[in-house]
Design a protein around this nucleic acid. Sequence first.
DNA 1: AAGAATAGCAACCGCCTTGCA
DNA 2: GTGCAAGGCGGTTGCTATTCT
Length: 264
Amino acid sequence: MEFIPRSEEEMELRRGAWTAEEDLVLMNYIALHGEGRWSSLSRRAGLRRTGKSCRLRWLNYLRPDVRRGNITPEEQLLILELHSRWGNRWSKIAQYLPGRTDNEIKNYWRTRVQKHAKHLHCDVHSKQFKDVLRHLWIPRLVERIQATSGDSPAVASAGAETPTTFGGPVNAIPELAQVKMSPESSSTGGWSSVDSFGLDFSPPPVSNDFGAGMHGGEDISGVDGVTGCWSECGYSDLGLPDFDQSIWEEELWSMEDTWLQQQF
DNA sequence: AAGAATAGCAACCGCCTTGCA
DNA sequence: GTGCAAGGCGGTTGCTATTCT
């Protein structure tokens, strides 16, 4: 169907990629006036964009606390677990990964996790794939986290008697959701609960929005939203190795193939 | 070296919810 | 209670960079 603009204003609306100039205008405006109502903000700032477009650009790209770059093993673990609980509730999942946007998590899921499922010729929601996650992917992630966090004895391990948190980097960041092994799961090898992988979470400890205390319907106003700025927390200086995703994925895939052959 | 295929991600779309008059 | 505008969210699209043939 042909798009017929109903007004001059609509005709002038810009779409597609944002220019550096537009970014600057939006950032400057928000720095001076705050977020406010997006539709009027767009007009007042002199941007020929919809309010929605401005909001999206700010939240997903321009916000100073947006983290970019590889999803760390800790974050992958959180995503896998939280997705097993809530499904495609990306914004809810994003609350537990400060600095990551729902869009980024959604993209990660679609490009990495679904790719895995496709490779294994199964659906991401199938029991088969969930088993692969539970028995192979997650334990491997835990191993990686252990390996990169050095000599932490508190790292999740099969057979641990009490809930333990991942040591090293994760513990170094109080703002990051604490991933804990539950006693039930640890007694059965770590990852055996039916609906989730047996991890325990603290409530979302940090707000990654700037101003509004409500996020996704849950009141998280008790936290200092502005100091949620990730770089200020030192996360960028954690020295997490930039582990080579492709190499470890290949390794994982061959393990998965072997494992699946044994299981099915 | 060039074209095709694929992956990754930014941005848009449309539906639903919320707040307000 | 109703209608409207705006915001929020999940799904989808399309562009660009990278890899493969």
